[in-house]
Design a protein around this nucleic acid. Structure first.
Lengths: 125, 125
DNA sequence: CGGGATCCCATAGGATACTG
DNA sequence: CAGTATCCTATGGGATCCCG
């Protein structure tokens, strides 16, 4: 029969890190929160561009599980929920910026190797 | 009808970087090559653990396309092909190590926050 | 030896509708 | 407002066999 390995088999801290902030949306969420400090759900969604609720909510859940962000809900009507980075989440921002800087160098090699400003993580040089 | 966006839409250098060394295998390949300098195809596969040929070959292709690694084939019998990092590939190694270091801190928080040695990228402290 | 071809599956991510 | 629920699909990655 067909046999797949279902273990996550993270064999190296590197894989752990890439699991936590890899993928299409997580690093972006972290960058946006790093820039804005505290954001409500709807503000966050607006900053993210064309992400859907289903996806945004599941990303937030995973980031919370990994203790990268915090959720504060206020008992008001209409409801208010605010998200912010934890210390662990903040500690990864320099890494994301270094990736951003590295990528900026090679982003378009056909042009003149000019640095690109990143709107989200706010890296520029 | 059902309409998916098929554009890759990389909107930020950060995404470019994660595309290049993200995923399950690419960062590992880079780390192994950083440690060993030059490896034949079969040596590389052995170092990688349980990767299959189909996957390894496709990862190598993408890494070559992105100019992270170089392929040198020698006209011998039996054939010999060697892989090594390009300068661009080498330049990303410090980033991978910083991810590895960061991850090591949070890797298992239930234990005593001890650093973990990474066999592949050779990070230790 | 160094892969390619083919087939397959699991999962991340997306569309749409709906709710406390 | 801040999400769930449901359904769907595209893609990364894996298994197996084959070939110059």
């Amino acid at each position: 029969m067909y046999q797949h390995k279902l273990e996550k088999d993270i064999r190296c801290p590197l894989e752990y890190g890439l699991e936590i902030f890899g993928g299409k949306w997580k690093s972006r969420i972290i960058c946006v929160l790093a820039k804005k400090d505290v954001l409500r759900y709807s503000e966050l969604r607006k900053e993210m561009g064309n992400i859907t609720d289903a996806v945004l909510a599941s990303m937030l859940k995973e980031l919370i599980q990994n203790q990268m962000i915090e959720r504060h809900s206020y008992d008001e009507i209409p409801p208010r929920v605010e998200y912010s980075l934890t210390p662990k989440g903040q500690s990864v921002v320099p890494i994301l910026q270094s990736i951003c800087k590295w990528s900026g160098i090679y982003y378009r090699e056909d042009s003149e190797n000019t640095m690109i400003q990143c709107q989200k993580c706010d890296y520029k040089e």
